[in-house]
Amino acid sequence: MGTRAIKQKVLGLLKQDDLADIETELALLQEKELINALFSGICHSDEQIRWHAVSVMGSAVAVLAEQDMEEARIILRRMLWSLNDESGGIGWGAPESMAEIMCRHQGLADEYVHMLISYMRPDGEEECQDGNFLEHEMLQQGLMWAVGRLAQCRREHLLARGAEHDLPPYLESPDATVCGLAARAIGLLGRPEGLERLQELAKNDRRTVRLYDQGNFSTVSVAKLAELALLELQEVG
């Protein structure tokens, strides 16, 4: 099967509803061919194709890492490069895909989680201040989702690097998705950051956010995400 035919097959399957069935079907393809096709999926305009591609990218690269760790690293470096200004690209879907990959493979999480965190941090004058702050709101949406996803599966990796302290500024974002997903990530990390702002959002912010969570789509208000975060923080407090 040629490259174009593989891409069409992959995108067609990603349109389906059941993520488990999609992953089963796509697992029959050779990992490198599948991953190359998925790069078209993670930046697709169709919500279902895009998010299913993110999930499948995670499982596919994890399988590849077990076969050839260096080839898996190349995929992560390709995503990192897409977020670099010098690449000429924009990097749609890269933070989300990186997080999903790291959820599926601990070795890659150990090596690359610090890079994902760096996208929340500005560059500074000190030698240790090596941030790669993402300014574009659409990329910040993906980054906040990525931090929340990692908080579900690699929470200690994030806390060990102080990622919880990077989240409160995003609660001030004018973008509802950035703001809401930041609130969700704070709750999932379970550290009392930005409490006053979370309380304000829980009372007043009726803007809505489209949320993808491991194969499931929902629409939820920023207020609800902030409320859930506060409940999570109460439980761990």
Rank of each mutant, 00 (worst) to 15 (best):
M98G: 06
L167D: 02
E127D: 11
A94F: 06
R154Y: 13
G162S: 02
H52M: 01
L201M: 05
L150S: 01
G88Q: 10
Q48D: 05
L211C: 03
L38S: 12
P168T: 06
K15R: 13
F39T: 11
A94E: 15
N204E: 12
L150E: 01
L189P: 04
Q16S: 03
E31T: 11
G162Q: 00
R191T: 10
Q140I: 01
E232R: 13
E227T: 14
L167Y: 00
A109N: 03
I22D: 03
G107A: 06
V113F: 08
E70C: 02
Q16L: 09
R154G: 08
R155Q: 14
L28M: 14
Y170H: 11
V54D: 09
H52I: 02
R149Y: 01
P169A: 03
E232C: 13
G194V: 03
I42A: 05
M1K: 12
Q141M: 05
E111C: 05
E96G: 03
R77C: 09
L14K: 02
A27I: 10
M120Q: 00
E47L: 09
G215R: 00
L158V: 07
R104C: 11
C153M: 10
R155V: 07
A62Q: 00
M69T: 09
Q152N: 09
M69P: 02
L181H: 10
N132T: 10
L139K: 02
A65R: 09
Q106G: 02
Q199V: 07
E137N: 07
E164C: 09
A60T: 13
L211H: 01
T208M: 10
I117S: 02
A185Y: 01
F217M: 07
A229I: 04
H44D: 13
R207V: 08
G148A: 02
Q67D: 11
V54H: 14
